[in-house]
């Protein structure tokens, strides 16, 4: 069964005719070519497919595209502002928190949703917030450090 779906992704409106059973992950990657959203377990376990829906982190592998209509979807491609990397992206690079990189888009989007609500987190809170994002390379400490750095930058921006 084909359905017409209007999606708002990174501020851009799309109208697509797709099978109703297709996941948001599949549509982002194969219809919109937004391959920054990664694909792996397809069972909501690993978090590499994390995107923001109305600012909330969700696993796009277990969301039907048709149910994301009318909501604001943000993928890693939509995070940079005016051609400048988001403070989280910059902090991950500066801290060397990226190794193979596969988990990073999801990691950064989970961190973004978290920092939007918790501007001054503890390391423990950051670890808890990222529990649904697995990384097989870094050992997590540099990721936590990068999120703290980004939090500092974002707090400074807010005060301005």
């Amino acid at each position: 069964m084909k359905v017409t779906v209007s999606l708002n992704v990174n501020g851009e409106a799309w109208e697509l005719s797709i099978e109703a059973d297709r996941t948001l992950l599949d549509v982002l990657r194969t219809e919109l070519m937004l391959t920054g959203t990664k694909t792996n377990c397809l069972e909501a376990e690993c978090g590499v497919c994390t995107v923001l829906v109305d600012g909330m982190a969700v696993n796009s592998c277990t969301v039907l595209a048709v149910t994301a209509q009318g909501r604001q979807i943000t993928t890693i491609e939509g995070l940079a502002r005016d051609g400048e990397l988001h403070p989280l992206q910059q902090a991950f690079i500066d801290r060397g928190a990226v190794q193979c990189g596969y988990c990073i888009p999801g990691m950064i989007l989970s961190a973004k949703a978290f920092l939007d609500e918790h501007p001054s987190p503890t390391d423990g809170q950051i670890r808890e917030a990222l529990a649904g994002n697995l990384c097989r390379c870094t050992g997590y400490q540099k990721i936590v450090d990068a999120v703290q750095d980004a939090a500092r930058v974002l707090r400074r921006e807010r005060r301005r």
Binding site: A44, G47, T50, M56, A57, V58, N59, V63, S110, A113, F114, A129, A131, G132, N133
Partner: peptide
């Protein structure tokens, strides 16, 4: 229950 991504929905 799960991670945030699971609890959010």
């Amino acid at each position: 229950i799960g991670g945030h991504q699971v609890r959010n929905v």
